[in-house]
């Protein structure tokens, strides 16, 4: 039987469930990080750089650009971390530890 026939005969396997959930969680984290990065750099760049010191005000003791550019997104990130850690991420079985010890593995990557 040829390889092609074999491939046609065996249905594609489902992806590993931890791989799937990890990818989903990693994408959510990457999106949050990108948003936090863009917000912080844009707000701080706009309010903190080239600023006339006479226009500086304070919010809860922080210079206004620090408060809106860093304190606020940092607080939001704490809340998001709580949500991701407590609700969004799934608990999964990581499986048993492989205890076969040192194996005589072969070079698997073709150059």
């Amino acid at each position: 039987m040829s390889d092609t026939t074999l491939a046609a005969a065996s249905p594609p396997k489902k992806p590993d469930p931890i791989y799937v959930s990890s990818r989903r969680e990693a994408l959510a984290v990457a999106a949050t990080t990108t948003l936090a990065f863009l917000y912080t750099v844009i707000v701080c760049g706009w309010m903190g750089y080239g600023r006339d010191p006479k226009t500086l005000t304070f919010v809860l003791g922080f210079p206004d650009w620090i408060f809106w550019g860093i304190v606020v997104p940092w607080s939001v990130c704490v809340v998001v971390s709580l949500y991701l850690g407590a609700t969004f991420m799934k608990d999964e079985d990581l499986g048993e530890d492989d205890t076969t010890g040192i194996d005589d593995d072969q070079e698997g990557g073709a150059a």
Binding site: E25, A26, T32, F37, I70, P73, W74, C77, G85
Partner: peptide, 10 residues
């Protein structure tokens, strides 16, 4: 601010 989620969540 994002190290907790990137360090463990990715």
């Amino acid at each position: 601010m994002v190290v907790p989620i990137t360090g463990f969540g990715i």
